[in-house]
């Protein structure tokens, strides 16, 4: 498998407080990486470094320009900063995912709109296309933002805690969609629910200032301890499970 992005000795900090230290890590084509770690461990920062939104204080991010043009990364932020009362429709929000391909003076063609229709259909919110965001539930909003990340047919998809707002009824279906996507798209997904995602991911990246890559979709409490990654495994199914607070 070829490498899409390589992080070499990456360190990052906010106002001098170190958040990531000496991160060495490769994103391989076709991988489905579950990014886990405690709150404040630097998961979001890691994604932002990969996107080029945060400049690392040391090290470099090497993009495989043959395999991955920079505009082929789809991103679902953890916190949607958009003002839901803004006069903009769901479809127009989704279309903003094409801006990176189309440039500053973008015009949206009917083909672009068809692409938007297609992803909206896929995620089951096509009937909301012309609604304002303030008419949507939390889960529908999250799906709209996911459409925005998907519309540009990304080669790499960075998802920051996508399960957070998705209604439980949609959660399984959502992971199934990701699993299908993963046949052509490399995915890196931050999540707290290690138990659930271990059914779908191929590997784990444990982020707590340092990054430990675990090349398997199975991970045990002992391994997490060894990676200095203090999070609780949530058991599902018959075992009585711990309900963790949503973050």
């Amino acid at each position: 498998m070829s490498t899409l992005i390589e992080l070499k000795n990456i360190s990052a900090s906010y106002n001098g407080d170190p958040v990531l230290e000496n991160v060495n890590f490769s994103i391989r084509e076709g991988d489905f990486i579950g990014v886990i770690g405690p709150n404040g461990g630097g998961k979001t920062t890691l994604l932002k470094v990969i996107l080029g939104l945060i400049k690392p204080t040391a090290g470099e991010v090497v993009y495989n320009r043959e395999k991955l043009k920079k505009n082929r990364i789809g991103y679902l932020p953890q916190i949607a900063e958009g003002d839901i009362n803004f006069p903009v429709s769901v479809k127009d929000v989704v279309l903003s995912g094409l801006m990176i391909i189309k440039g500053h003076s973008a015009r949206m063609s009917s083909e672009d709109r068809k692409k938007a229709d297609y992803v909206l259909q896929e995620l089951g919110i096509h009937h909301l296309s012309n609604k304002s965001l303030n008419k949507l539930s939390g889960g529908e909003l999250q799906r709209a933002y996911l459409c925005r990340a998907l519309i540009g047919s990304p080669k790499l998809l960075l998802l920051d805690e996508p399960g957070n707002f998705v209604d439980t009824s949609f959660e399984q279906g959502f992971y199934e969609i990701l699993k299908d996507l993963n046949e052509t798209v490399t995915i890196m997904m931050v999540s707290h629910d290690v138990g659930t995602i271990s059914t779908y991911v191929k590997s784990f990246a444990c982020v707590n200032r340092k990054l430990h890559y675990h090349d398997s979709g199975r991970i045990t409490t002992e391994q997490l301890k060894a990676y200095d990654c203090p999070i609780q495994l949530i058991a599902h199914g018959d075992v009585p499970h711990t309900v963790l607070k949503r973050h």
Binding site: L51, L53, N71, Y75, P77, A80, E81, G82, D83, F86, V88, D92, V93, L95, S96, M99, I100, K102, H104, S105, A106, R107, M108, R148
Partner: peptide, 18 residues
């Protein structure tokens, strides 16, 4: 720059990604 203005006004953080 209609699209750019719209998206910068709506969601500045995301606009920085493109």
């Amino acid at each position: 720059y209609y699209r750019l203005i719209l998206y910068v006004a709506f969601d500045e953080g995301y606009a920085r990604t493109f």
